[in-house]
Design a protein around this nucleic acid. Sequence first.
DNA 1: AAATCATATGCCGATATAAGAATATGTCAA
DNA 2: TTGACATATTCTTATATCGGCATATGATTT
Lengths: 117, 117
Amino acid sequence: MARAATTTDAFNAVAEPRRRQILDVLAGGERPVNDLAHELGLAQPQVSKHLRVLREVGAVDVREEGRQRMYRLNGEALKPIHDWVKNYERTWSERFEALDVVLEELKQEEDGDDSGE
Amino acid sequence: MARAATTTDAFNAVAEPRRRQILDVLAGGERPVNDLAHELGLAQPQVSKHLRVLREVGAVDVREEGRQRMYRLNGEALKPIHDWVKNYERTWSERFEALDVVLEELKQEEDGDDSGE
DNA sequence: AAATCATATGCCGATATAAGAATATGTCAA
DNA sequence: TTGACATATTCTTATATCGGCATATGATTT
């Protein structure tokens, strides 16, 4: 078996840095393909290909306007990534470490409590 | 050019679902390789290989204990992912949408205000 | 030392990639 | 209709992957 296709899910689509850059630009508003190509210093065909991947995972939507195609961010497609990674925030955030201490204390009290379960 | 190596960064390492599962288990505490293999229903060699990738991007640390190797989560390696994706939270979170409204209002006032800043 | 347990590594095969260049498709303008 | 513009697709080449299986490495027990 080979590596999962880039179009499998948002995790795979976004593993490519150029695609993250494209999304970052689109976060500032709708853009046509050539705009993106110039802004990121990429060749037009590569941008079109990256956009195809992003479209297949639902991270962008397209709208036809004359001969241009306006691409727009659809951030919801990234929610699964956020949902997954936010559970690890506690491992580096002092704020969450402090919360962990409180939870640990509560657990201690519970353990010393013989009220059964 | 081919796809970037899975060991290039956390984004690539974590695009593989099994590796996310491994991290999820390790979030519950240190584990030896066979434990992970059983818990996830994977063959031991594949687990070792996935752990190698995770180790190379710094997402796990190892500690030798007799003939076992205890693997431990190092969540900080996932911070870049969190930092990137959190900027998109506003696109699906009502809470942030509300914040956007407030910011928009502030901007309106500012624009219509000639008292400088 | 030999047997056993725990883990890592090597090899195989099928597959998807990403960039580049060329070209196809499609739209608007003269 | 012809030409210019905007975008998508196709083909090529080099490469890394993932699972399965066999095996190497290393530590512990008997």
